Simulated assay, not measured.
Amino acid sequence: MDRSTFILSILLTLTATTTTFFSPVYAGTFDMEFDITWGDGRGKVLNNGELLTLSLDRASGSGFQSKKEYLFGKIDMQLKLVPGNSAGTVTAYYLKSKGDTWDEIDFEFLGNLTGDPYVMHTNVYNQGKGDREQQFNLWFDPTADFHTYSVLWNPHHIVFLVDGIAIRQFKNLEHRGIQYPKLQPMRLYSSLWNADQWATRGGLVKTDWSNAPFTASYRNFRADACVSFAGKSSCPASSPRWFTQKLDLTAEDKMRVVQSKFMVYNYCTDTKRFPQGVPKECNIH
């Protein structure tokens, strides 16, 4: 079996395993579920609320946020990223709470020169502190079609998924003295913006504005989640499984195989960054 066939077999097997984990999700149109919050018309809701696009030019990027706040849930969104030479651009897609000691669960997609892979950046913040980055090269072209990027967030763990494949897990290890986001409701945000001072090859490759406007597209938002309003959280009665679901040992093993093939940065192995020792959770299995 050649390498590409081997990787495809891993992903197909893992997809079959993970997509059975979670209960059905519920969708809303973009005009019902989101507000475009900045960009002076560069964010657009199209096709009767079924499609949303963000664009970036030399003058400004754009962004949106969910009308609702969530406290635990399974969040899915399909994205098609900026095609062609996207160097210098960042498409951010994340959950975040309010205030100076915020919690946050991040996907960020760092653009690159035509033909080079996008870097998918992930991070988890607790009480305003992040520094838990893991980065991946995707095994497909994320600009050619829509792909589903998901967050499962429950009291046991946070799982990042791509097309139903678990790529990263951040466990609740409060019993070991490690903070876990569980008290602050979060909104879902996305933005497309210029970050050519750091985004591509550490800032060596700058944005080529002759390719502007840059555009990212969104569809098929679904949230099976506990909605927080006025300090109270209401959970769907039909969704007990995602609230308690954990990855079994087989799924965790398969996730580690995917990480071994596609992870390009892991804060847990960056001893130069953490000369006094990597964060505590890195040594707990």
Rank of each mutant, 00 (worst) to 15 (best):
S190I: 01
L247F: 01
R241M: 12
S190T: 03
K232E: 13
G203I: 02
F229M: 15
P240D: 05
F243Q: 13
K246E: 10
W209I: 06
V257Q: 09
A199R: 00
D270R: 04
F243M: 15
V258D: 00
S238F: 14
T200I: 03
C268S: 08
M263Y: 04
V227Q: 06
W193S: 06
S228A: 15
W242D: 02
F274M: 08
T271N: 11
R256T: 08
Y267V: 12
D248W: 02
A212P: 01
S190P: 00
Y218W: 12
K232P: 03
S191N: 10
G202M: 05
M255T: 03
N211L: 14
S233C: 13
D248F: 03
R222W: 03
N211Y: 15
K254R: 15
C226H: 01
M263S: 07
L247R: 01
F229Y: 15
S217L: 09
K246L: 11
K206C: 04
C268W: 04
M263D: 01
Y265D: 08
A230S: 14
S210G: 12
K206Y: 06
A199D: 00
P240Q: 11
Y189C: 05
D270L: 07
T207I: 04
K272M: 11
S190E: 02
W193K: 06
D196Q: 08
F262C: 12
T269I: 14
C268I: 07
T244C: 06
F229H: 15
A223K: 01
C226E: 02
V227E: 03
Q197T: 10
L188S: 00
N220T: 08
S190M: 06
T244P: 00
G202E: 02
W193N: 04
K254D: 04
S210C: 11
A251R: 10
T244L: 10
R241A: 13
W242R: 10
S233L: 10
D208E: 11
R256V: 05
A195Y: 01
T200E: 00
R256P: 03
L192C: 05
G202Q: 06
A199H: 01
T269V: 14
Y189G: 04
L249E: 13
T200A: 02
V205D: 05
L188H: 01
S234V: 11
V257I: 15
G231I: 07
